[in-house]
Amino acid sequence: MDRIQIPAGADSPYAYAGPEALRQPIEAALRRVVDPEVAMSIVDLGLVYGVAVGDDRVEVVMTMTSAACPVTDVVVGDVEAELDRVVPPQMTMHVDLVREPAWTPDRMSERARSFMGW
């Protein structure tokens, strides 16, 4: 399976490669996936590293903060379900869960950091 190369992003919270028409709906979809304990989205928490949209697939590269987290599959399922609502029906979703680079608090958004007292 070819890995789609994800270039570094400038203004978005994560690297995005794909049609402009899908950029906002995909970001909105990912913002609906929330860590229930802190009521913040995976985008605000800085867990999403990149999104790449090809002809027939959407690839999301993301991480989790803990290798001991049992909720990982639920989060991945939520990501797929939310993306399914916004992307064209012929596209398949692939979530790449990576451990490198490791998540650090500076990946959190301004809003998340101010809520957490940074």
């Binding site: 802190v38 928490l45 803990s66 001991a68 608090p105 959190m108 998340a112 957490m116 007292g117």
Partner: peptide, 12 residues
């Protein structure tokens, strides 16, 4: 305690 420590990484 371990799980709570992990959550505190979100704060300074």
């Amino acid at each position: 305690a371990a799980e709570r420590l992990e959550m505190t990484r979100l704060m300074r």
